[in-house]
Design a protein around this nucleic acid. Structure first.
Lengths: 339, 339
DNA sequence: CTGAAAGCGCTAACAG
DNA sequence: CTGTTAGCGCTTTCAG
């Protein structure tokens, strides 16, 4: 085997036409079971590997769905991608994943690259994009799904929730439990658009209740790490020691804050309450367990996958873009005196 | 714009040949700056998107490197993939990622799928594969790199470390600190091959020192979650209360074990020591901080990426397969009485 | 159920 | 620096 065999070689070896070989490698095509079996065996013996690239060019179907996420290493996004992948796999589609690193400029670059591969649909995380990225997606000629957000001006389809509203639930939970002096720990809002939305939601919710919304600790670029969460808590305890409760932009930061309290002998929730976002595994396991909000990442992925599968099969309602809201749920635990 | 424009349309609009347009979209091709600029602008105006699929077919270069990892949602593998992606990106290569879910059968299926896309190289996690998977990789005709392991019979290139030896370091560390009755928490070894290797290494190291290697707590399928780590610790404390130290197959499980101690008022390390593997962020942040072993996941990715870039450029030594050992490092912290 | 001809959109190879 | 010709490996389309 000097050069890799093509369908032509398989056809010759099996004594049929190339077309018949092609049919033998698809599930639907009409061909007798015996012929298919024979061809498959011949191909196997020759070490034939089907060439998707040629198939894609001729059929003008890449079998790809391009997906961008801020970070691979985030349980929430990973769960969405996992569910999306499973659902699309069932529809014979493969996920082509790109990571934006929480950077809209990188997202733009990535989308440009991904589109050259002729994906049949595009799934992006969030509803904030550069102008050029928006234009590219709009002119891509394939379904676009924005996830993990509820954009004001959607590009196409949406499967997500409101990152601002989510903080309303959290502030409501905390005020119901009697907390008033509440702080927020988050990343640099110039980057993490969803985190910035959550911060905005926090400020708005505090103002609505006539509470002081100015206890905002900003750490570096997102994602906010556990270490940064701990550092932020240290600043908070040093500079605003009368703070009664802290909301972190996400659970890892909340956990970091919790550890800082442990190191200082500050009791949670007796001395200060802590809550996060994302319902990461750590929040249920930490001592005390952390109050959080579950955005149901797997549901988001599943719904997005289902939507795309329907759209590409063509039996989706062509009544314009779909908006699927996946309602997050507050999970009250010991760190805010609940559970 | 009814149908998407091709190079032909761009060529017509720009008043040049298709070939010149093709050249305008590559970096090396010889073409005057003015012409290139003009063509690029024309293409932009028409909303032209370069078609990689056609390019790939004709040039017989997909620009893909196929990569399989057990789980997307694992900081260690994610770090490897991130570093690999960066390095390959610099070489103009894109990562096509597949997740095996710690399942060799799924890995086999995935490799078959990925190979159809004509990747220029293949990077897999671990050195254990099904026979069919091994055959496919060997006959793929592209460089294969096994990572995160030091296989006895490598398929091709290797960038990794020994998962058995790593436990020798850990047991050495613990015995040096005076611990004798040491337990191991791990997943079902039928699945997680690297975890099974680490368990084997633990048993071997204990035996070498004449210590009892039978304190093995097995939880479910890998990856062992924080919750499962906690459950395993509960069993351990209930059934083998005289255990002096625990090694978990990975940090999340070690952290779960730590939380179980916290819930029970068992002091770490005074009553029992705990150590993990992977040097996940949580180990440095937890209270007490967890002793772990850093396998330098980013280095693995970087080295694998570098190797592939060299190999594909052709200026790598053609002296057979490369073996790059990335030496893990023990990080001693408070949970084993160090730090 | 099977086959022959044509061509998807791009680039290799050559010529100028 | 630019153009012409041919064809990558498969599938669409049409015949039988």
């Amino acid at each position: 085997m000097n050069t890799k065999p093509t369908m032509k070689e398989v056809a010759a070896a099996a004594g049929v036409s190339v077309m018949t070989v092609s049919r033998a490698f698809r599930s639907d095509a009409s061909i007798s079971d015996a012929t298919r079996e024979h061809i498959r065996k011949t191909a196997d013996d020759l070490g034939y590997v089907f060439d998707s690239v040629a198939s894609n060019l001729r059929s003008q179907r890449s079998g790809f769905v391009a997906v961008t996420i801020p970070s691979i290493n985030n349980a929430n996004f990973a769960d969405t991608v996992a569910a999306l992948t499973s659902r699309l796999d069932a529809a014979g589609l493969q996920v082509l994943l790109g990571r934006t690193n929480y950077d809209m400029a990188e997202e733009e670059r990535l989308i440009g690259q991904l589109l050259r591969r002729q994906p049949e649909a595009l799934v992006v995380t969030g509803g904030h994009h550069t102008e050029r990225a928006r234009r590219m997606m709009q002119k891509a000629g394939v379904p676009v799904v924005e996830t993990w957000d509820l954009p004001k001006a959607p590009l196409g389809h949406v499967v997500g929730f409101s990152n601002t509203d989510v903080m309303r639930f959290m502030v409501a939970h905390l005020t119901a439990r009697g907390y008033r002096r509440i702080a927020f720990i988050g990343g640099d809002s110039a980057y993490d658009t969803r985190g910035a939305d959550r911060r905005r939601g926090f400020v708005a919710a505090m103002e609505e209740r006539g509470l002081d919304p100015s206890r905002l600790i900003t750490v570096g670029r997102p994602p906010v790490s556990m270490r940064e969460g701990a550092a932020a808590m240290a600043i908070l305890l040093d500079t605003l020691p009368d703070t009664e409760a802290v909301v972190a932009v996400a659970d890892p930061a909340a956990f970091g804050a919790l550890t800082e309290c442990a190191r200082r002998g500050v009791r949670v929730p007796d001395d200060i309450a802590i809550a996060g976002f994302g319902n990461f595994e750590i929040s249920g396991v930490a001592v005390p367990a952390l109050t959080s909000i579950d955005p149901f990442p797997a549901r988001i992925g599943e719904q997005a996958g289902q939507l795309i599968a329907d759209l590409l099969r063509g039996d989706a309602t062509k009544n314009g873009p779909t908006l699927i809201e996946v309602e997050p749920q507050l999970v009250a635990r010991a760190s805010t005196g609940a559970g």
